[in-house]
Design a protein around this nucleic acid. Sequence first.
RNA 1: UGCCCGAUAGUAUAAUGGUAGUACGACAGAUUUUGGUUCUGUUUGUCUUGGUUCGAAUCCAGGUCGGGCAACCA
Length: 556
Amino acid sequence: MSEERSLNFLEEIVEADLASGKSTQIHSRFPPEPNGYLHIGHAKSICLNFGLADAYGGKTNLRFDDTNPATEETEYVESIKADVRWLGFEWEEEHYASDYFGQLYAYAVALIEKGLAYVDDLSAEEIAATKGTPTEPGKPSPFRNRSIEENLRLFAEMKAGAYTDGEKVLRAKIDLASPNMHMRDPIMYRIKKTAHHRTGNDWCIYPMYDFAHGQSDSLERISHSICTLEFEVHRPLYTWYIEQLGIFPSRQFEFARLNLTYTVMSKRKLLQLVQEELVDGWDDPRMPTLSGLRRRGYTPASIRHFCDRIGVQRRENIIDVGLLEFCIREDLNASALRRMAVLDPIKLVITNYPEGQSELLPAENNPEWEDNGGYRDLHFSRNLWIEAEDFMEVPAKKWFRLAPGTQVRLKNAYIVTCTGCVKDDYGKVIEVHCEYIPESKSGQDSSGIHVKGTIHWISIDESIDAEVRLYDRLFQVENPSHEEGDFTSYINPSSLTVISDAKLEASLGSAQQGEHFQFIRKGYFTIDSKHAAEGKLVFNRTVTLKDTWSKESKKG
RNA sequence: UGCCCGAUAGUAUAAUGGUAGUACGACAGAUUUUGGUUCUGUUUGUCUUGGUUCGAAUCCAGGUCGGGCAACCA
């Protein structure tokens, strides 16, 4: 965070609250529901909550909003905790809304005793039908005026399991004519005879989110409860419960959720992609989940920087995924080791380099570092692999690479002059020929020749094989959710390309999971945590390098 | 035809009644043994109509457009 950076609206609120004494300490919380994996939209919320507390000397809790046992699982709890830690944050206290079930039940009883809640026997359909519409008031349930004693008895019976799912609910008695639909006698408790991931079969009634969230914040003394915009209309209800119960007044502030181009961000849609096997699980490297980004090779720092840069406001937004890519390139450019890898190999024969001869040439590990990050030795010989796309028999305009008669430098080695190529019976180029210039050796070049192009290469004798997985954006359109029809019909059919026979420099044979490499001129890569196995190297492409040539070549 | 929220370059985000700035992108150039990095420059913006004011992106009013709200989901 740079010093001259201006405050975002949440920081302004916090500073004002601290200055006025409204808050003495900032206490925030990240409140996920354990029913799915965290995605980059959650990262925005995490960075906001933890960042705010951090900046003002406060603390942040992790609280699982686990009030719906039907969809929640311990597996998700574990993945969420791992993802938050991976992102680089550690919470002060770990809580579960389910820890408050007893307290919440007591709160409900208190509201019944104040005549502010009643047990309703209407079915879900009947309640919906009598709720009215945004322009018409709702109609009271025939059970709305039950006595406090009867409500107390019925609610206790609900808790004791005397009724079946859906047979009765507990409703707050507020205002059926409210223009805010959430105030039209909202449901507080429903019967669900379902085992809960933490409380097992202790309960058969569960509080609704609206009856749990605000009180949970209050119980934890959360000073600033920040959430996304869609909960804005819930705020009056949240406040109503707090006031009627006379408990600590946490205050809620809403911000606009993150949207990213060429992907989807709703848990429902992400779940659909997983269930329909349109992707390889929640951690598919094309997914915007934190586990997917991690497997893809994104670093926690790059995601944190991204969240810093996108800012926070209350207006709907869609961030260009190019900004995320900029952030990871920025990070990896500074940290990743440079290595040579040929993804689409074609043979290059240096016809004037003696058969059987070879030499070791030093290559820098990272030109951004002091001393270039040290050097490793590259094996050089007569027969090399080069990238097929680095040769054009009929060169394009502004072509700096190999074509009959042109000169290029082989990175860290010699300048070569292309003398021609060999084709198969179908006219496909299968071999490129060239002659090297001995006095142009890298680091001791006395040739005086300046070439525009430099290409990467691998000595055929010393190369190793690997599978390389190239990823592109998952969707073909900027905003799949805004298109006609099912969003899955906009999936990019070439979002994954698997190369089974890439040629890598030998040093990559010892690559470890979690290490990041720049394959020179090709992009940033990391070991795939899922497909790599003993004796089988598999790399994921995190992101390509910025490619001004591809733009230039498209100009025609 | 209800209620709530919002509207600043292509995308985000500042300017808090006083010179519309920054980032990413795009474009042009320099440097470069990665068509990478780095550096320099250029381009594009206050939704609209009124009002208040010496002065409005900012305050007020009307309009337009966008988002949200009628789950026993969160």
